[in-house]
Amino acid sequence: MDEKDVSRTAQDSKGGFEPRIMAFVCNWCTYAGADLAGTSRMEYKENVRIVKLPCTGRIDPLFIIKAFENGADGVLVSGCHPGDCHYTTGNYHARRRWIAFRSLMEFVGIDLRRLHFSWVSASEALKWVDLINNVTDEVRKLGPFAEYKGLKQGW
């Protein structure tokens, strides 16, 4: 029922490549930071789609792989700054897990330049804006992540 066109790689008005970015963010810091960018009427690249989670500590590395499989050209993970976690230590778990899974991600064929980690607090709207713009630009340079999208169709 939720079958959709995987070839739906976005294109800009001129027909050039526009990357699709999936962002996994925590509810308390980064989600609120992104909200603040809106309340402050800032502007950033439209390429990002947010998936809200209670805490970055909730993030299963499989989420990231799934995101790539489902058409993401880049993935961003962002939560509270170290020491600021709403759940006291969730972001440390996320960081530790990231260190452990980094090489695995590379092993399964994910170009680590497509994967970004950041800390954005609820007051750092500007940081969020810069982050999205930078990640979008960087992933755009890399081109579409066709290899991984193919995987899903192959199944």
Partner: peptide, 8 residues
């Protein structure tokens, strides 16, 4: 408190 660290 529902952080989900255990789930991951």
């Amino acid at each position: 408190q529902g952080c989900g660290v255990c789930v991951a």
